[in-house]
Amino acid sequence: MDDLTVSTSRVDGFEGFRDAVHGSHVDVMQLQPGRFRGLLTHIGVGDFSLSVGSFSVGLRTQRTSSDPKLIVGMLLHAENRVTHWSYDMDPGDVLVIPPSIDHDGRFHGASSYAALRLDLADVAGVFQGESWMNDPANWRRRNRYRADPRVGAEAVTKLRAIVSRLSDPDGRVSPEAADFWRRAIIDVVTATVMHSQPPTTEPVPSAIRLTRNAEHYIEAAGPRPVHVSEICAECGVSRRSLHRAFDEVLGIGPVTFLQRKRLCDIHSALRDCDPATTTIAEIALQHGFLNLGRFSGYYRALFDEYPSETFGKRYPGRGRLRRPEPAAISTAASPASRSTSPH
């Protein structure tokens, strides 16, 4: 299993954005007058990388065709017009830059973006079961996907929350959890692409057999968090088919099922771990939860007690997460804290 790595740096000149997409050289030129201020974050898991950048003045960017990797970018914020090739981009829109294709972009003001870079061969495994998205040939054409306002806004909020949490020096992620967060990032960045695809009519296996196979895989994975895209890839079905099967057999969708499985694993971990070596926040992150307020609410709804109460049963008075008031669970201090945890 690969480790998750995170690096964040402040950039005081446009030259620093030549590494705007980790592993891919980008020619950058400042076109708008003003002092350049930027922030650049790279998150990596094995050969996969996510780059998130923000800058204060307008730029011209160009990538040469020598890069063999696929890049999928999402505009997070724009103060003014943004164009890539001949496409106008709005926040939430997604851009596909195929391998070995020249790219040019123009930012007319302060902007922020996210770009994931992965091997084209990996899309078959990442999107297995999604008939259009798992075909590498469909990613060999440059394209721009317009975001549905709701889907795009939710994706931007979720991605900001993931990057903020994973960039926290105290947010250590184990190799066992790294693949979950890799899948969660891909899921968020490509949500607009998936939402744009029409429903497909695929042969659906027996709901009981499909649900049983999924449960066997989840059980074999042990306590590590399992992402819904991983189940689809293992069973070779789309999310729609998996959802129909789980709803028919268990009365809940696979995302809810996986969330409750992770909560059960956290419950067991809280009963067994030593507060001297870990915290509730660390355990929650390892099992795929970003926002502690929401996590605490989910946990109490399932077990009728707060995480700190479970933690304190073995070590009275040693819980690291203060018990929140019920009202604190339904309100949040910032937009990032209102995002839902990825599944």
Score class of each variant (00 low, 15 high):
Thr5Ala: 15
Val6Met: 08
Ser7Cys: 10
Gln30Arg: 13
Gln32Arg: 14
Gly38Ala: 06
Leu40Arg: 10
Thr41Pro: 10
Ile43Lys: 01
Gly44Tyr: 03
Gly46Asp: 05
Asp47Lys: 09
Arg60Lys: 12
Thr64Gln: 06
Ser66Gln: 11
Asp67Arg: 12
Pro68Glu: 05
Val72Trp: 05
Val72Gln: 06
Gly73His: 01
Met74Cys: 04
Thr83Met: 03
His84Gly: 00
Asp102Ile: 00
Asp104Tyr: 13
Asp104Cys: 10
Arg106Gly: 02
Ser112Arg: 06
Ser112Leu: 07
Pro136Cys: 11
Arg140Glu: 15
Pro149Ile: 07
Ala153Arg: 14
Ala155Arg: 00
Ala155Glu: 02
Pro169Lys: 02
Arg172Asn: 06
Val173Gly: 02
Ser174Met: 07
Ile185Ala: 00
Val193Glu: 05
His195Asn: 11
Thr201His: 03
Ser206Pro: 06
Ala220Leu: 14
Pro225Glu: 06
Cys232Arg: 08
Gly236Phe: 00
Ser238Leu: 03
Arg240Gly: 05
Arg240Pro: 01
Ala245Glu: 07
Glu248Gly: 06
Val249Gln: 13
Leu250Asn: 10
Gly251Tyr: 07
Val255Leu: 06
Asp272Asn: 03
Ile280Gly: 09
Ala281Gln: 12
Ala281Arg: 15
Phe295Trp: 07
Tyr299Asn: 05
Lys313Glu: 15
Arg314Gln: 15
Pro316Ala: 07
Arg318Ser: 05
Glu325Ser: 13
Thr331Val: 11
Pro342Trp: 02
